[in-house]
Design a protein around this nucleic acid. Structure first.
Lengths: 358, 358
DNA sequence: CTTGACAGCTTGTACAGACAAGTTCAAAAA
DNA sequence: TTTTTGAACTTGTCTGTACAAGCTGTCAAG
């Protein structure tokens, strides 16, 4: 540190970082600093000029030099990253659209990223974003039920003061972070109870094992069975992974039917899977809902060429995006927020279920 | 420009922008500049320091000051803006997804913007993006058939060396820019000829008037009629605007039916409109395709609860996004490109049309 | 009480000079 | 021929001075 102005710079920087000089505070005048450090005023000016370029301080002609307040000493980019598992499929465009509508109103732009529900891509994504100077992140965790080994990246975000919000799922090690979630347990409970109320007893459950949504929906399913006095039968559960999703549920259900197992109804992980399963059931020569009732999840409003309106659970889609965006904006403004918004599930009755032995 | 160092700055900046000083070139030494401008060396240093912060030049201790070469004086952000009319509807998620897949592979991120097909929002968008330091833009023009009064913004992009590509539509004043388009004229021609071949003579055309796609599809429709020896009847055309799209075609077609006009078939602007019109036709007590045949455009694969698979024209969707993204990347790399990619339309036969008097 | 002039502060621009530190290249030495 | 030396250049640091331009609170005039 042989260079004088460098010494002054680090001195002042430390004062700011240790909050002895708070945002908005006025710094001593150049002449006073010059006297204090026993240097010329020009040397002080050089130090202050550097700090201004770095964004720590700003000078007002005739008035003085002040500590920057703008979002912890770095200029806001007005960019917010939205990290989703998928972009074009299913409910995601609507969620993104909801986020955009709120951010657009407030002058923010979306940086869109998708992970393909792959953990390694989520990590790569976050590393990229940390480099990028963004104001906040809305993220849908990839494989949220697989243990999160990259908490260090989220710690880094905390350290840099970049706020983030999880939607749809959560990592168990970060339950205390801000989330916008659906009550998946209750949603699946409602669906399963609806089937039980229709008189079904042999209810197959098809769940995704690598995200929290799948886990929670499974729990709701189990609770409804218990309340309905129906024994939980592990053989009636089909677990699948993201990579399996196009084949595994399909094949497994067909095998169960082949084996002649009694199946009254199916609680599917979501609408997408439900449509796959309808196709599987029909291929086996059975009818939906006459022979087997089926439920979805998310109210995606697609029909998948099946001609059936699924009984499902409403997914707020655009509204969920809007809620998350509004929460993130208030976090950016530094307002305190509730950490957890849980959206109440609502049953949507379609024509994919029928009373048993009607 | 009473300020001397400011004068020096703009002087040098202009020399660099006009390429009289090329990247890597050595600038005159501080002492020489001081003599030339008749100022002190300190004043020259102040000017050069500012230019260094702005990234135009860099100084090497003991050696000299040089013009920056790094990609036209500004660091690449690895961000590419995608400006679409809509985000969540229709074919747009697929197009975005196609763009993302190519960009992601190459380490780029998408900044997503939507204009709601409003010209003023497109302008606001571009102004925002010009501030932002992006590497390129893929843009779907809003109301491409309304005269483009904001060419100055695109000129600015040219000046700053930010490449951009138009998709879907084009502004007439910028036909020489890079585009990825469908041959809309031919697509509508194929659809109309198909209807004529089925024996239809009274073919209503429903077109959007504020984008080039609508204009071109109308032209294709007219050409097919002419070739088929059918007189073009302006009364059989329904023109609508973006803001009208939910109501106007619907109401107008119903009125035509009420008046008892002979209608064999309808060529709709796109699938979305086609589904509206199917609903309108059914409300009037007529059947599709038994009473009226109808065609769409874009092969959106939705069914809109109609139970009908539209006869339509294939829209490459993801592929279009990929093509545009690849072209933009090669433009960023400075490679020469063809200015115009026209995608050949392909007829998709559904069950929304029927032979006349079968 | 309100207004306006002004003194005394602040930062901004500009000058001039001195020396430090790094680079370059040619002449001198090996 | 290769290596070393060193003068002459470059930018970097630092000092000191002068005046311009902008802000702020005080104090006297209205």
């Amino acid at each position: 540190m042989a260079v004088k102005y460098h010494q002054i710079e680090t001195d002042i920087k430390n004062l700011i970082l240790s909050e002895e000089i708070k945002p908005g505070d006025k710094l001593p005048s150049e002449n006073i600093l010059a006297k204090k450090y026993e240097v010329s005023r020009q040397t002080v000016r050089k130090a202050l000029a550097d700090l201004e370029v770095e964004g720590y301080i700003y000078a007002v002609h005739g008035s003085g030099t002040f500590c920057s307040d703008a979002s912890r000493f770095k200029k806001e980019s007005k960019d917010i990253a939205v990290v989703m598992t998928y972009l074009s499929d299913y409910i995601f465009p609507k969620v993104i659209s909801g986020i955009d509508s709120v951010l657009e109103e407030n002058g923010y732009s979306i940086i869109l990223k998708n992970t393909g529900n792959s953990r390694s891509r989520e990590i790569r994504c976050l590393e990229e974003l940390i480099e990028k100077n963004i104001d906040g992140i809305i993220i849908e965790p990839s494989k949220s039920n697989v243990f999160c080994k990259h908490k260090d990246l989220y710690d880094k975000l905390d350290k840099y003061g970049i706020p983030y919000i999880f939607i749809q799922g959560e990592y168990s090690v970060m339950e205390n972070k801000t989330h916008v979630l659906m009550d998946d347990e209750k949603g699946a409970y409602l669906l399963t109870r609806y089937l039980i109320d229709l008189g079904h007893r042999n209810i197959v459950g098809v769940f995704k094992s690598d995200d929290t949504q799948g886990q929670n929906r499974h729990m709701g399913y189990a609770r409804a069975l218990a309340e309905g006095g129906i024994a939980y039968d592990p053989k009636k559960i089909i677990w699948f992974y993201t990579e399996d999703r196009a084949v595994h549920p399909y094949v497994n259900l067909q095998e169960m039917i082949k084996k002649g197992e009694a199946i009254d109804a199916v609680v599917a992980y979501n609408d997408q899977i439900a449509f796959h399963l309808i196709k599987a059931i029909r291929e086996m020569g059975l009818r939906v809902p006459e022979d087997i009732s089926i439920t979805g999840y998310d109210n995606s409003q697609a029909q998948g060429n099946s001609g059936i309106n699924l009984t499902t659970v409403a997914h707020p889609q655009e509204e969920l995006g809007k809620i998350a965006a509004r929460m993130l904006l208030s976090m950016i403004k530094g307002e305190q927020n509730e950490k957890r918004v849980i959206i109440e599930p609502e049953l949507i009755i379609g024509n994919s279920c029928r009373k048993k032995n009607e």
